[in-house]
């Protein structure tokens, strides 16, 4: 019992004293995850919008693949990238293994299906009357598409936040491709895994608390955005 209390005390001390190692780890975590999320959104939102707006042969297959991708086990992504990036792998010459770039790529792969699929679903939920109204007010096909995307904005942002939630909490993929190198590729989740293993609970606990706070903030934002995204009912229809 005393051991637990001591661990918490020391963890809090680390947080309040803004411990340098702690800050470094948190900063790298945010950098990796937010960069991955940025690229996942950059490609995922337009692709999801395209899937939501256009019908074409093979679209169902893509949607099924994306939905599978949403539940992709991070360790499998890590394994797959490890094989690609390892010295004897086809992309070994890029020397990306155990770098933050490899971690960003791993998290990109995890976030992309979520952002894309949730964007697509937000777009198809937009009432068809919006598209028609835009057209009858003189919008070009491109302007019509932008209008529908804008109408789906809360759902899309909710998708981006869901993507962030997934990558921030993930450990399997980045542990494999990042290697948890101190001062270089150590992030919140990988440090927790390693330090717990070593019996060094203070740092692990401090990071755990930070991760919980971040996850709490992510979930509150998700909730608020989702709620705002439900348009007020048109009472007379």
């Amino acid at each position: 019992m005393e051991f637990l209390i001591d661990a918490f005390k020391n963890a809090f001390f680390l947080i309040v004293s803004l411990d340098k190692e702690l800050l470094e780890i948190i900063t790298l975590s945010l950098k990796v995850s937010l960069t991955a999320l940025f690229f996942a959104s950059l490609f995922g939102i337009p692709f999801g919008a395209f899937l939501g707006l256009k019908n074409f042969l093979g679209k169902t297959v893509i949607l099924i693949l994306l939905n599978t991708g949403m539940g992709l086990p991070p360790v499998v992504v890590g394994l797959f990238l490890y094989m690609l990036f390892s010295r004897s792998g086809p992309l070994g010459f890029l020397q990306l293994l155990y770098t933050p770039t490899a971690m960003i790529i791993a998290q990109f792969i995890l976030a992309f299906p979520i952002v894309t699929a949730l964007t697509q679903s937000a777009i198809v939920k937009v009432d068809p009357i919006i598209k028609l109204t835009a057209r009858t007010l003189g919008a070009t096909p491109f302007q019509v598409a932008l209008t529908v995307i804008k109408e789906a904005r809360y759902g899309i942002v909710a998708g981006v936040i869901a993507g962030l939630g997934r990558v921030m909490a993930e450990v399997g993929a980045i542990l494999i491709v990042g290697g948890n190198i101190a001062g270089y590729t150590r992030v919140i989740t990988t440090t927790i895994a390693l330090e717990t293993d070593k019996g060094n609970f203070e740092l692990a606990l401090a990071l755990g608390i930070i991760l919980l706070i971040i996850s709490f903030i992510i979930n509150i934002s998700f909730y608020i955005i989702q709620k705002r995204g439900i348009p007020p009912n048109i009472a007379w229809l």
């Binding site: 009357i129 835009a134 009858t136 007010l137």
Partner: peptide, 29 residues
């Protein structure tokens, strides 16, 4: 298309202010 327009029975309301709804056709032009 830009010379004709259609008002639906259910209007077709954008999730935006009244001002932005009315400004729509001018914005896209």
């Amino acid at each position: 298309f830009r010379k004709i327009t259609y008002v639906f029975p259910q209007v077709g309301i954008f999730n935006a202010s009244v001002f932005d709804n009315v400004a729509y056709g001018l914005n896209i032009r």
